[in-house]
Design a protein around this nucleic acid. Sequence first.
DNA 1: CCTCAAAATGAAATCGTTTACATCCATATG
DNA 2: CATATGGATGTAAACGATTTCATTTTGAGG
Lengths: 327, 327
Amino acid sequence: MANIQQVAKQAGVSVATVSRVLNGQNTVSSKTRIKVEEAIKNLNYEPSMLGRNLRNSESRILLILIPSISNPFYLEIIKGIEQVALSQNYNILLCETDSNPEKENIYFDLVRKKMADGIISMDPAVNIDTLKELAEKYSIIQCSEYNLDSGIPYVSIDNEEASYRAVKHLIQIGHKKIALMNSDEKFLYARQREMGYQRALEEHGIPLNEDYIIYTKHLGFEHGQQAMKKILAIQDRPTAIFAVSDLLAIGALKEINASGLHVPNDVAVVGFDKIDFSSMTNPTLTTIAQPMFKMGTVAGEMLIDKIRGEHVDNVILNHELVLREST
Amino acid sequence: MANIQQVAKQAGVSVATVSRVLNGQNTVSSKTRIKVEEAIKNLNYEPSMLGRNLRNSESRILLILIPSISNPFYLEIIKGIEQVALSQNYNILLCETDSNPEKENIYFDLVRKKMADGIISMDPAVNIDTLKELAEKYSIIQCSEYNLDSGIPYVSIDNEEASYRAVKHLIQIGHKKIALMNSDEKFLYARQREMGYQRALEEHGIPLNEDYIIYTKHLGFEHGQQAMKKILAIQDRPTAIFAVSDLLAIGALKEINASGLHVPNDVAVVGFDKIDFSSMTNPTLTTIAQPMFKMGTVAGEMLIDKIRGEHVDNVILNHELVLREST
DNA sequence: CCTCAAAATGAAATCGTTTACATCCATATG
DNA sequence: CATATGGATGTAAACGATTTCATTTTGAGG
């Protein structure tokens, strides 16, 4: 495994010159450049990132914090981040926290130990105090879920408005008894989406029914099923469900089917995210499309700018209501 | 951002001693250990992985090559790998190749440039010649999909037997007209699963009908739909489908539903992998369960052993037929 | 109190780059 | 021909840890 010294020796030049060739600096005469390139080829030389990274005090690795790799919502975002990262010679380290502070801390350590140059946090359950503290010394961006007070730059959508439009759609096709399948209120997006739900109801003179709001602990399929069971047991059963995640909605779909009811004739369902699976279900799912890929590219660009020491502004992206078979 | 020198100075010892404390060597007297630990705390010192990695000629990063992050089959494997990796102080770099040689090469470069200590390849479309060449100098393990000639250690299941049992199950519940929805024959697992299919038919005296075998280019949902369309158009329509991936099977399910036929009464469907989503469909999917998490942990252990210079043997894990509503 | 082995510590080399600064050389100019 | 100029190249010092080997300190045993 040759190193730069050996290349220099073989080419009859100094390591500085080899380094210059390696980094495409134009102060090298073409004569010596060729000599060096030949030596590189001869020796099968590959520059070591270890040496380079130490010298440059960078790892060229970006950390991505997600609660669960199983939630397809994040996958498309990750693809976006990856595209930007690769194009700028960064690599991404995917970190599944399981919303577990201990695991989270393992990953935070990576940036403390210079193993990573920055973090994109998408975990709603992230310890915001630690994150804030970290953000003073390191580059951090919040993606999708964010905390305003933290002062950490974020990219997201307008959750309140998106939710409002989803519920308004249900009202417009004739529903009055609309349930909200929400996640834990400790999350900002959950509160924002609930506000949109309330605004839509108010605006159309529909009184708020507390029984129609169900909170789930996680955004998984099973939690959607369980929540739906509760909703189906309500005396004055809702005729429409707005779930704050497609996975919840798909769980609801499954449970409604199992109970012998029909979607959308008996119960209409609207999801949120537009994950791939939402078009694979039977019936396909009406949902709010988040621009996930775009969100990823923006987050990636923001983080890299931040690492470079540039100033970055918060970004709010557009969403879209996608009408399909479930309404 | 303190370094080891400053800690040494503050503690009034040499860097060697600090390093010894850092690495928990027991040749340090408790008196000086305490001094050093206090200095570390005072200065908020965090050892830099960049320096350590260069000195140790390692990156403590494992590369995972997958064709597509969207295929949930890989997610569970990745979780297995991650568990082992973290427990041994490694981190994993997830690399989506899109079966694109160019992108693949970017990632291969990471190991050539010492940015990664080894590779777990799960991409059936990997360029096996490059992989073989790389395996001479670096630590590589094949997971799930493998190439025997390459001499690169692998962990997988007995695809032929699994496929045989799936088809046998269909035969036992009365089916004779069984279609095989296979992926491209250039993949070893595709050939192995086709052999299992043939053996099951032969053994029960069912003649092979070439029209009942459909090849798809990729393992995605849409490809399952398209393949199913072709199958439904066959004159003497099959009464059962064995798809070599759950995603294909779910696509088939969707298409069968759309055509007004009923699963399993009109057409039975068996999938392969037991991805999470296979229990969320309507009806739920009978499938071959691969021990994905286990496969991940084994692959992780094999790779780390290999990196340590130990000898590793190939591993074949058990599979299981999971009966659900679609048959 | 001396001796000596064992334990504790330190000095310095090393890993493989990049880069500031110094130096060399060729060429143009007077 | 001497000299200034600028381009091409080299020297050596970082970056931040680990580790070998040498040296010092410690403490037990006589």
